[in-house]
Design a protein around this nucleic acid. Structure first.
Lengths: 210, 210
DNA sequence: GCTTGATTCATACGTTCGTTTTAATCACTG
DNA sequence: CAGTGATTAAAACGAACGTATGAATCAAGC
């Protein structure tokens, strides 16, 4: 077959459209016509519109989390028996998300944008999606607490949220950032962005707390 | 009159609903019924749904920008003839947004949430809204560049976007952050949040660039 | 080659949406 | 009190939405 599976085509197209216009802003008719599928295909394969939305996430979150843990363990091993550098831990957290931006997978490029947007979706879908990140987040929090032992727990938590906010904003609004900076910021330089955000956040995490 | 103006009631209600469910996710019927107004009232006073959305922003952005500039000038004067401390400049930028969270104005409490969400709205509304922040943003960039003369222009730009991301995320998802941190983060402690974000970002801005 | 299960298709249903229209009501002024 | 412009009210419009239905088509095994 030269044409890909309908189910996968729907996932790919939906990933892009949901990333651009959100759940409510994307109609099933827009998805199915862009995917060259029948209108009823979504309900057949995913039950409901929200089912498709959840499936779009399910496809990526697992591998992304696995990759994060892998990079974290790799950093831990490389530094053993010492604690790894803060920058390496942050990079392990950020790289699997930012890396998708340069992926060859046709749909994956849109996922970081979608991920940055999910915080603005309403309902339990948001909570359901974000809960899938909890296990890996707690692993990172353990390691970070070990690297920064003098930092109170709440402070570490806040700073991780600050980092997530920066990540979500840059992935969700990359083109907008480029536009508003008069072209000074190039959102296509993913490698550079990873380094910039890593050094910025690393300095922030290391700041003494009051 | 004991009852407030219809126009203002619509703005207040819309501010909260748009903040919770976004532009597409909020129906005019939900707005008008919550505001105890007629369905046609929105179209009469604001022309269209997007007109109401824009009006909600227009009401707050101006004063917020003025307050930012005022705090910035105040910091400049207090430090003259030296450059102000980086923390004071960042606080001047953040305080007018975070301050609304503890405002007595019934609708203002919702505005920071709405502001954090506007990046996820689609269409030209987003660009139109964000352009209103440009003038004040450039003032801040000038001062920041003066405080951090060794930092390349693009780097400074990126870091400001990182800060905006952290701010947007914390204001838009405060309750969610509290939930996901197991209650360790208290989003009601606005003063504390301002200080935490200021010191975090200040350290990030001061990090040497590669 | 017919059967069976999976998928696709065209179509329709009922709801909800933003907007419009037309009439009613209100607040004032001359 | 008549008249006028601003506001509110009730009702309806057409369009778009998510979903459901039943027939048509396809692929594979016996």
């Amino acid at each position: 077959m030269v044409t890909t599976d309908t189910r996968q085509r729907l996932l790919d197209v939906a990933e892009g459209l949901f990333a651009d216009q959100g759940l409510k802003g994307t109609s099933l008719r827009a998805i199915t016509s862009a995917a060259e599928a029948n209108l009823a295909a979504v309900n057949y394969h995913f039950g409901t519109k929200e089912g498709l939305f959840a499936a779009v996430f399910q496809r990526r979150i697992g591998p992304m989390t696995v990759e994060r843990i892998r990079l974290l363990d790799q950093a831990l091993e490389a530094a053993a028996p010492n604690a790894p550098a803060l920058e390496d831990v942050l990079r392990a957290y950020l790289a699997p998300t930012l890396g998708l931006l340069t992926s060859h997978d046709p749909g994956a490029v849109n996922f970081p944008r979608l991920l940055g947007r999910v915080f603005s979706e309403s309902g339990e879908i948001k909570i359901q999606v974000l809960n899938q990140f909890r296990p890996s987040a707690e692993r990172f929090l353990e390691v970070l607490a070990q690297i920064l032992p003098e930092l109170p727990h709440a402070e570490l938590m806040w700073r991780l949220h600050f980092l997530i906010g920066s990540l979500a904003h840059t992935t969700a609004s990359g083109k907008l950032i480029c536009l508003m900076s008069g072209g000074a910021c190039d959102p296509n330089d993913v490698e550079g962005l990873l380094e910039r955000l890593t050094t910025y956040a690393a300095a922030g995490f290391q700041a003494p707390s009051r």
